[in-house]
Simulated scan of single mutants.
Amino acid sequence: MLVTVHATITRDAQMGYGYCERMQWHGDRWMIAPGATPAPAPSTWPGSDVSRAAGWRTWAGEGDD
């Protein structure tokens, strides 16, 4: 999972965070899968060329474009 967090407290700030876990489709949803931990992915900004080259995918919730 690679996300962008946007928060406004007293000024505008952003951060990116990535967390990688082995996943599998189970029934009607994604779940953490058994097995070895995936290889560490590079730390990168969501949507960047480096993130796409590393295989990160954009997570869009229901109704998102």
Rank of each mutant, 00 (worst) to 15 (best):
M1S: 11
L2Y: 03
L2P: 08
V3S: 07
V3M: 03
V3D: 01
T4V: 04
T4W: 05
V5S: 02
V5K: 03
V5F: 01
V5H: 00
H6N: 11
H6S: 06
H6T: 15
T8R: 08
I9C: 02
I9E: 09
T10L: 01
R11F: 13
R11D: 13
Q14R: 12
Q14S: 12
M15K: 06
G16V: 01
G16W: 03
Y17I: 13
Y17G: 11
Y17A: 14
G18Q: 01
G18R: 00
G18N: 00
Y19F: 08
C20E: 11
C20Q: 06
E21G: 09
E21Y: 08
M23G: 05
W25T: 01
W25H: 07
W25I: 05
H26P: 04
G27V: 03
D28A: 11
R29H: 15
W30Q: 07
I32V: 14
A33R: 11
P34G: 02
G35T: 09
A36K: 08
A36N: 10
A36M: 05
A36G: 04
A36I: 04
T37A: 14
T37N: 12
P38D: 11
A39H: 03
A39I: 00
P40W: 04
A41L: 15
S43L: 08
T44R: 03
T44Y: 08
T44W: 07
W45I: 09
W45D: 06
W45H: 05
P46F: 00
D49H: 09
D49R: 07
V50K: 08
V50T: 12
S51G: 12
S51D: 06
S51M: 04
R52G: 05
A53K: 13
A53R: 13
W56F: 15
R57Q: 14
T58H: 02
W59Y: 12
A60S: 14
A60D: 10
G61D: 09
G63P: 04
G63N: 08
G63V: 06
D64S: 08
D65G: 15
D65E: 15
D65P: 15
